[in-house]
């Protein structure tokens, strides 16, 4: 069930996590895992196709960054188009959650 939901919301998750600052792929995967207490896990096989797809859509931009004494890493940041897409998806998600809560949430209240 959780995995099913993950597919539809993966983009929103990734976009949200890089909204404030650029992050590399594993950092994104780890944040998703830790923030959801392991309920949601992104492996390389699912994370990178998603990142590349978003990059091709020009919602995010990948950039190799070299820091002194460290290996270069690829960081992803939001583009202007990505910011707009995030806002759209976020409001869509809120509307969806609100609608779901009216039915599911209230019946269980």
């Amino acid at each position: 069930m959780v995995q099913e939901l993950k597919k539809g919301t993966a983009e929103l998750l990734v976009l949200s996590l890089i909204e404030e600052r650029a992050r590399h792929g594993y950092e994104i995967a780890k944040l998703i895992g830790s923030s959801t207490d392991g309920e949601l896990n992104f492996h390389a096989a699912s994370l990178y196709p998603l990142l590349y797809r978003l990059e091709q859509r020009k919602w995010i931009r990948g950039r190799w960054v070299e820091k002194a004494g460290q290996r270069r890493r690829r960081y992803y940041e939001l583009t202007a188009a990505g910011r707009k897409a995030l806002a759209d998806q976020r409001s869509g998600w809120r509307a969806f959650v609100k609608a779901m809560n009216r039915i599911v949430g209230e019946s269980h209240a």
Binding site: N41, H43, A44, A45, Y48, P49, Y52, R53, E55, Q56, R61, G62, R63, W64, R74
Partner: peptide
């Protein structure tokens, strides 16, 4: 075990034709 089958990942990378992505920032 977690990564499982790699072929969907390879196909996804081929599909997104990674060449047009971000290379110029390197």
């Amino acid at each position: 075990c977690a990564e499982g089958d790699w072929s969907p990942l390879a196909a996804a990378i081929r599909e997104t034709k990674g060449d047009s992505l971000g290379r110029r920032f390197d």
